[in-house]
Design a protein around this nucleic acid. Structure first.
Lengths: 398, 398
DNA sequence: TCATGTTTGTTAGTAAAGCCTACGAAGGGG
DNA sequence: CCCCTTCGTAGGCTTTACTAACAAACATGA
């Protein structure tokens, strides 16, 4: 009972290979789905180099080689290619006194490309931005959404995108869109009630219209990607968006979860508790939305007679959220839950009470390290998530 | 708005590659983690060929080439290799009158290798079996577990494994173990209260002891893999094991979910409902286990005065399970939930009532196709899942 | 001062893998 | 009997990453 051997190399085994000998997967291979050609391996390794510099910039070729496991030769070749494309730049020699030839530091040229991000999740306005590769917002634009739906709403998305494209000041990597509703992997919006959309192939439509790579996904899914990339989050993460409705995005093992019908994260209409509740627009009673959707919460807070009364309102709402989340946190063994919504409502007390409820309803030892907090990305979370989708799809980096 | 274009090829894009242009992922690339060498691609493609024959046997090289996308040349080479290893055999020419040279049918030689599977999840007995590549049980063995724990239990696992190894009648692919408790990716049993184990490196221990590839995983995780491979299940699946305790295994997108602390699926101690409940051994009240664990259910059924009373007991328990599962089904947008446990208790009424509760507490349109059923694999589900783990790890096939 | 060791990045050659082209084998149909 | 189709295999080519080797550039210690 000495070393944790991987159990791979066996003297008695006649079949001496392992399909995926990844360290993390440790003998558990996934079902292969598509053939792999040398060029695919190449793309993967190029993304690996890019990722290495994306997470920690200012590294030399030799640094990248060490961190990726590739040889310096291969890294050099990939770097040459990436520099020719403008994605990487040399930043001069590394300072400090070290033996040997001084290293030439590399970094991603974050301004070499730009991304257009669009957020359709607000009920009153379509928001958009031009972002750089770091996810920083370079320019903004928005168009009001005065109750329009259907084709008119689609036209307004196009108008906003046109306005944003005019603001782009570097080669464009693509357009990312975070849409409310159910969105499939091809960027088809199956249903978005607020926009009156049913089976709108938004991604294909925008691609035909603008001839630029487009990625369309659910707004909460975009948000959780942003939180992961910019919010210093871990690999297993649930992001709960609380607004007029309630939705969530799930990131498991670093990848988004879509669900069997692309409706993962749709927790707004899950009934909470066993003691009734208010009537919901969906026909049921006691849906999560009836407890914590912002309009209802604000109404209750208005009615509250005192500061203590408002705290009680918040505590009860937070408790309901905790009751809904506890089985999810338990089943997925989540380490982190992030809330996105109006900070003045969801701040301190609400977060604390939610966490307390989850803790009291799950097995503490498994979740002792559960953290629950508000996002630090504010209202731009979907915009930045939309950018992450494009950067991830085009560069394999996040 | 014609064709669902992938949004990949853009006339304005300077960066003309996509890290992973998988059809399913559709522009959403995962963060790369490890370098890919030509040999890795080779292993992947070999697994692809094997998988193709695994799911649909009796196919020619040309058939495999068409279904995988690889060329006939490459497939031929891989097949030659796999036949030399004994995994594939030629089954003679295809019958029926077709133009052209008749095809030589291939199939996996399911008896060419065997796997040892061990199930430690029963409280009274360690069960084991020798299985073929199809997951059929060839020989069985078991050892009673008369309350022993710690090193004694470990010794008994070794004794059972020794007995099983003596029954193996073909080259051995490896040993798979489904253990209760929290098991990490290296097969270390972090905690298994019933066995009195804490941080027992079972996988490494057995590998050192027997010099054969070993895969150790949680019993529910093994079970869900078995259900997926043999039970005709879909890619998103939750398997709930109901016995002395309650646990679950989750398969999302075809891959198992482990969770941030390898405790995914541990739902037995999630509090259900907002109206109290019985005292649980964990200290809380109203944990799922207090509602549906088999010993408690049996006690209640014994106390029930009539047939109708027993139905009420089952209905209430099923309702509680539904209440616990509803947020999970909703958040993950699960299409399928499978129960594993004593069939005479969990049959008809229990399943129906659980499904009804879930439906009444989630958004129907997203889950109209939710199915909930008992496993068809019976008590061998963990044994067969343990075999799947080994076959999957060694051959990349499931 | 100068030889030595160290680190970096690049050049040349090699091994692995899958592709394309082409070919013989084997059978059906007119 | 000739043409066509399909199957499996050879030979040659391209891509990719690796190993080996080397020049450049710097620190250090005799």
């Amino acid at each position: 009972m000495t070393q944790p051997v991987d159990g791979t190399e066996s003297p008695r085994a006649r079949v001496s290979f392992l399909s995926q000998s990844s360290t993390a997967a440790s003998g558990r291979a996934l079902r292969p789905s598509a053939k792999v050609l040398p060029e695919h391996a190449r793309g993967h390794n190029r993304a690996l180099v890019l990722q290495s510099l994306f997470t920690t910039g200012q590294r030399s070729r030799a640094d990248v080689a060490r961190s990726t496991g590739l040889t310096r030769v291969t890294v050099s070749e990939l770097v040459t290619e990436l520099m020719a494309e403008g994605l990487l730049v040399e930043m001069g020699q590394r300072g400090g006194a070290r033996p040997g030839k001084p290293a030439i530091l590399l970094d991603i040229d974050h301004s070499s490309f730009q991304v257009v991000g669009v957020d359709l999740s607000d009920f009153a306005v379509f928001r958009g931005a031009v972002l750089d590769l770091r996810g920083n917002i370079v320019r903004r634009a928005e168009l009001p959404l005065t109750g329009i739906t259907g084709q008119a709403a689609l036209d307004r998305v196009v108008a906003l995108t046109e306005r944003l494209l005019a603001l782009v000041s570097a080669p464009l990597l693509g357009i990312g869109v975070g849409s409310p509703g159910i969105v499939d992997l091809a960027g088809l919006v199956a249903t978005a009630p607020n926009l009156g959309w049913t089976n709108v192939p938004l991604q294909a439509y925008l691609f035909e219209r603008f001839g630029v790579p487009v990625v369309v996904a659910n707004d909460a899914n975009a948000a959780v990607l942003a939180e992961h990339s910019f919010g210093d989050a871990r690999e297993d993460l649930m992001l709960v968006r609380i607004g007029r409705g309630v939705g969530a995005g799930l990131l498991l093992g670093g990848g988004p979860l879509y669900g069997s019908r692309f409706a993962a994260g749709e927790i707004g209409h899950v009934v909470v508790g066993t003691d009734g509740g208010q009537q919901c627009s969906c026909g049921k009673q006691g849906c999560l939305e009836t407890w914590i959707a912002v309009p209802r919460l604000e109404a209750k807070l208005m009615d509250a007679p005192s500061e203590a009364g408002r705290d009680d309102v918040l505590r009860e709402a937070a408790g309901r959220l905790g009751i809904a989340l506890a089985p999810i946190v338990g089943a997925l063994n989540l380490g982190e839950v992030v809330l996105s919504g109006p900070g003045q409502i969801l701040g301190g007390l609400f977060v604390d009470a939610t966490l307390e409820t989850i803790r009291s309803r799950t097995m503490a030892p498994f979740h002792g390290d559960l953290t629950l907090r508000l996002t630090t990305l504010g209202d731009d979370i979907v915009l930045r998530g939309a950018a992450v989708m494009v950067i991830s799809a085009r560069l394999g980096v996040s």
